[in-house]
Write a protein that binds this DNA or RNA. Structure first.
Lengths: 208, 208
DNA sequence: GGTAAACTTGCACAGCGTGCAAAGTTGCAC
DNA sequence: GTGCAACTTTGCACGCTGTGCAAGTTTACC
């Protein structure tokens, strides 16, 4: 954890970005998806409509911040695994660790909201696609000359599909309990490990 | 192959739809992605802008027709496999057969165009997502009580990710040759079978 | 041929997304 | 602390998307 030198300018921008994302999330929860405009988000965050579009390309983009930090976390955790660890074990450990991310509940909400709104779903899928490209680069670098491009693309695509499946299942069966976030995080982790183990050992083994 | 009773109305609608999709594809090839509007597509297809939007929700949607028939084909081929065949062998055979689809080259173009245009990519990903949901239903029905929901979601997601990886690789290394489409189809089929075999047997086996 | 249903079209309108230039902030050197 | 350079916010204008609505046109069927 390197102590970053953050100028006042950077701080302000981060704070504005955070405020906009929070405003968008609040509006989505109160008005429902599709029930608000970029202008309303901007107003709620106390910036102009134009400034909103300086930070996000679309109203939907403002909602997927939690997923992006989840995916950033996955990438970082993977990079932190030892180089000699088998790639699939490294992936399982890395994805399991993502459940420690701060705003995990927001990710769940996002999955639920995206299920009912094509625009949001498309934006959400794009975020996963961008993360996939980054992880592919990292894995290609890690396995240089040990694996074909096709292998790496298929592997990373499947990895993220399995993670998505686990999160989707977890999100749809999430309790509305205010308490025990730990239980939730643990059950998600179990699902992720379960799907990735199938991936490692082959899907033709006995079904769980 | 059931002989369909198609009324004049249905014929006209199909023809209009085909004309619009073709116009969109032509414009994309000549003007490049993002270099044309819904109105231009409509003009080229000799319909009004409003009619264009009766057929497609967005300009991008008009471009992904070839991918949708590819995915429809995958779904149909899978449904046609014998019930007692192991699910992964059925999937491999079904996806391999999709390379016989008519407009395979258009699919390749689409992959290339989507790589450079987020809007088109998002729409493309949505089409795969919709197909995923349909295939999940089919597989859940086929494996009723033999597999958990999580298993089926992870499996089908991975299946399509592997197919996507194969198509993406194939599209990016496609020759501009006018001739031998068969060679192209065969090399795509080989890639698809290769990735799905990894999926069946587990990605921790020796890399190809 | 006439009628009902289905399809097309024009119009209007709300919202998205961006280029541009003017106004307001912040960082830094003196 | 003054002033300048770099950066950020904002308003404005503009073209495009996507949809409801009502009037016009085509098709099916009797």
């Amino acid at each position: 954890m390197t102590e970053q030198q953050i100028s006042r300018r950077e701080q302000n921008k981060l704070e504005t970005r955070r405020a906009i994302a929070q405003a968008a999330l609040d509006l989505a929860r109160t008005h429902g998806m599709g029930g608000f405009t970029a202008e309303q988000i901007a107003d709620q965050a106390n910036v102009s409509r134009r400034t909103f579009f300086n930070y996000f390309h679309s109203p939907e983009e403002a909602l997927i911040v939690s997923t992006e930090s989840f995916l950033d976390r996955a990438e970082a955790e993977l990079a932190a695994r030892p180089q000699n660890e088998p790639i699939l074990d490294a992936m399982i450990a890395a994805l399991a660790a993502t459940t420690k991310v701060e705003n995990l509940k927001d990710c769940g909400d996002l999955f639920r909201m995206a299920a009912g709104n094509p625009d949001l779903l498309g934006t959400h899928l794009l975020a996963w696609e961008r993360a996939e490209a980054r992880i592919i680069s990292a894995v290609e670098h890690r396995l240089r000359d040990q694996a074909s491009t096709l292998y790496v693309h298929a592997l990373v695509g499947s990895l993220l599909s399995c993670a998505k499946a686990a999160m989707s299942e977890w999100a749809s069966s999430e309790t509305a309990d205010s308490g025990n976030d730990n239980n939730d995080a643990q059950s998600l982790e179990n699902s992720i490990v379960a799907t990735l183990t199938m991936l490692r050992d082959g899907f033709s083994r006995p079904f769980s």
